[in-house]
Write a protein that binds this DNA or RNA. Structure first.
Lengths: 228, 228
DNA sequence: GGAATGCTTCGACTACGATCGAAGTATGGA
DNA sequence: TCCATACTTCGATCGTAGTCGAAGCATTCC
């Protein structure tokens, strides 16, 4: 009853480099086939089969079959949140000093985390919505205010569709690089999709990096203002 | 650079029943000796030595020596938060149905999580402070307002001492049983200590259960009011 | 239907890690 | 100083889990 079995169970699932690699590969929020994941993790198909079965039965991945293809994705946002948390744990000053290269700066600036915006820009989005009172913490939950709903509709977000889905509208997700929350949930995902439609950002197919265009970054900064 | 090694590293640490048991035993926030942890986990001293060394070098536990005694505690609140998150993951409807007995209800009602109040009562505390504007979410951080500071001083919390420490004042900690945030940080810990001083609650030395006295629960409910 | 491709199953191998008996070191108290 | 206790080290054992070659099943396409 004390949660020990669950901790050990999930810890075991995570505590293998091949499986961890598969999970982080799926952090962008899309689904990949078993073969793609095998290649990404650098193992044979049979090894991948074994690992993926464990992750699926363990509740960390979902499976969708299309003919001979099996598409795996992270089971839910909670799994993504857990992975971001683990990435950040003990990611203290020493580890940060070992991070080099522009790619890591790009990841810090803006990256995709289960289809929503993370990194500095994700934090900015979250903070701006709170500062402008579009979002408030009500009864311990992030809630979209009336003015926030108006804002989102003007911005092109179909709130009716979002509310119709079972998925929570607003959730907080602890950001790995920034150690603060960014906006997750169906709203967070819808916003990132809208940024893409507006051509403000592009997603890198081979990584989680999100690249802002010059115009996009300016527009984003004008739309989502923070105190600093 | 993608966090995979950290995930696997920590997953490996957590993915052993003995170590998981040790970690959950330390969730109350106190320090225990190596021998106590060995007994709690049901292993010999030599096995415990090996595990504890791993947990310490892995950054999950801290060590303080007192003569021949070695006291281990969770390294920080982030570790406690991670453990609560893992306890809750996949703790879905099916698992809830298997939970039986008064003890589990007691854990849900009020329990200690790294020295702060968790469970229903922890949620109530958090929500009440937000509803009364004693706490607000400012720049993505939980912040104590001026009126909140006044309230705390009247309630008997030494805010000067709390601010003098390096520890964050307010932090959110995702609650295992309730799937919402309760108040962590040095303020959360100070509040629980005050509840004890006021004899509102008692801690069970052998578990994480916190028991409210009749008077204590009434006083708590009157002091920390929520919308429902 | 046959070939190609995606994925699975089987079985063997090997590395690894938890465990504890035995022995040792360090500390505290009488 | 001696004894008791807390903890550590060493080495051996054994169970487990990741891995892949070989073979097989399922799907798709020409």
């Amino acid at each position: 009853m004390d949660g020990t079995p669950n901790i050990a169970r999930i810890g075991t699932l995570l505590g293998d480099n091949t499986r961890a690699r598969m999970l982080t590969t799926l952090m962008h929020g899309k689904a990949l086939t078993a073969s793609e994941l095998a290649r990404e993790a650098g193992v044979t198909a049979q090894t991948a089969t074994s690992h993926l079965a464990k992750l699926q039965s363990g509740g960390l991945l979902t499976l969708r079959k299309q003919g001979r293809h099996k598409y795996f994705a992270l089971a839910n946002e909670e799994v993504a949140t857990l992975l971001e948390t683990l990435m950040g744990l003990s990611n203290d000053d020493r580890s940060l000093e070992t991070l080099t290269g522009p790619r890591d700066a790009a990841m810090r600036h803006a990256r995709v985390c289960y289809n929503h915006l993370a990194g500095n820009k994700g934090i900015q989005l979250h903070d701006s919505l709170l500062a402008s009172k579009a979002l408030v913490l009500s009864n311990g939950n992030l809630t979209l205010t009336d003015s926030g709903q108006s804002f989102m509709q003007e911005f092109g977000i179909d709130l009716q569709a979002l509310k119709a889905s079972r998925s929570p509208l607003c959730r907080e997700c602890l950001d790995w690089s920034e150690r603060r929350s960014h906006l997750a949930g169906s709203l967070g995902r819808a916003l990132l999709a809208q940024f893409e439609r507006l051509k403000w950002v592009k997603r890198d197919p081979g990584s989680r990096v999100i690249t802002f265009s010059t115009k996009g970054e300016r527009a984003f900064n004008q739309t989502f203002v923070t105190a600093e």
